[in-house]
Amino acid sequence: MKKVAFLVTGLNSGGLENYLLRFLTFYENKIDATVVCKGGYIGILKKDFENLGVNIIPIEIGYFNAAKFYELYQILKKGEFDSVCDFTGNFAAIPLYLAKLAGIKNRLAFHRGSNNRFKETPIKMVYNKAINKQLPIVATSVLANSKAAMNFFHNGIWKDDPKFEVIYNGINASRFLDSDENLRNELKIDKEAFVVGHVGRYNEAKNHRTIIEVAIALCKKHSNILFLLCGNGVDTELKAKVEAEGLEGQIKLLGYRKDVVKVLNTLDCFYFPSINEGQPNALIEAMVAGLPFLASDIDPIKETVPKELHHFLVSPLEIDLAVDRLLEIKEDKPNKLILADWAISHFSAKKWFDKFYLKL
């Protein structure tokens, strides 16, 4: 059994957190996992990880907190880990240096975004540039879940160096698609309604501002179109806007739910206009479920969907064009099974989880 320390910010529901949860579920009883939450908090997925026997350690690490870095060093030293994997991109540099000092021979950095996810100030950018240069030195492997991420963080060096590798997200389709249940009865949705949905926590990168404007435009013109938005914080952050428009009956805000497959089974189309992504788990899940989609034309998404479907990608801030394309999907009703078969094969958990597992 591999003894591995995984370093994350926290365990709230998001792309990385769900990826790690599914990965550890896939290799249950093969990995003795410790998750170190560097943000100092754990989050709503705490019980899900604990049910897998994962040891969770919250420790708040700042940019220059020597005492906390020493505490992390002690955790890594005493843990006697075979490997450590830090999912915080460039910010893995110092923890992986500490892991090296602690005698951990296998040290992985994993980029899960395709650009900087902090407010760029001159001081932060100097710091970021410095740790970016150190990352390939202290890491034995530098991974990313998209070529777009590699091009952004390590352009010019990653393609010719075997230390760098792109490992796409994997979905265990048989386990993910374990139910054909939907929420139409529960939410009192007419069987003839065309339901557009989005899954993702409320976050600037997920572009809920555009989603809600598109939803309002469509719902005001078409009484048989509904929007279903699911994700942590969505219900509280968007409630006032929906109520002000008088569209509570057509724009349903679910907040965080574990039964994502039921949400997807309720939809006729998936709308995903993210401003930036690493590689979008939510979009992959929608494709695995066979849903037609409209998504943003950013590089990580272009890399995620088949080239022949790139005409379903639009600028993330486009409202009028998004409205038109969603209406086209409503009328055309694309073949779900063809997309599902492609996605299940292309994002095979066995293929991509195995690549990551072998790195640990």
Rank of each mutant, 00 (worst) to 15 (best):
E80D: 15
L76R: 02
Y97S: 09
Q74R: 15
K77C: 08
S83I: 08
I94G: 06
C85P: 08
A92Q: 05
C85K: 08
Q74F: 10
I94L: 11
I94H: 07
F81E: 03
D82W: 02
T88I: 12
P95D: 00
N90W: 10
Y70S: 13
E80V: 10
F91P: 01
F81Y: 15
A92F: 04
F81P: 05
Y73P: 12
F91K: 06
D82R: 02
P95C: 00
F87Y: 15
G89K: 09
L72G: 12
Y97K: 08
K78N: 10
Y70R: 14
L96N: 02
F81D: 03
G89M: 11
N90D: 10
I75W: 09
D86Q: 04
E80H: 14
D86M: 01
L96C: 02
V84G: 03
A99D: 02
P95R: 01
V84L: 05
P95W: 01
P95M: 01
K78W: 05
E71H: 13
F87R: 08
F91T: 05
G89C: 11
F87I: 08
K78G: 04
F91E: 06
L96P: 00
F81W: 09
T88S: 10
Y97T: 07
V84R: 02
P95T: 00
L96K: 01
F81L: 07
T88C: 12
K78F: 04
T88Q: 14
S83L: 10
I94V: 13
E71V: 11
Q74E: 15
Y73L: 14
K78L: 06
L76D: 02
C85G: 09
V84M: 05
L72I: 12
F87S: 09
L76V: 05
E80K: 15
A93W: 01
I94C: 07
L72Y: 13
G89F: 12
F87L: 13
D86R: 02
D86E: 07
A92Y: 03
G89T: 09
C85M: 13
Y70I: 14
Y97A: 11
A92E: 04
Q74D: 14
Q74N: 15
Y97G: 07
S83C: 14
P95G: 00
E71Y: 12
L72T: 11
G79F: 03
G79M: 04
Y73C: 13
V84F: 04
T88D: 11
N90M: 11
E80P: 09
G79I: 01
Y73V: 12
I94W: 07
Y73E: 13
E80Q: 14
S83Q: 11
F91D: 04
N90Y: 13
E80C: 13
I94Q: 06
F87A: 08
Q74Y: 11
L96M: 01
A93P: 03
D86V: 01
P95S: 01
L98A: 07
K78E: 06
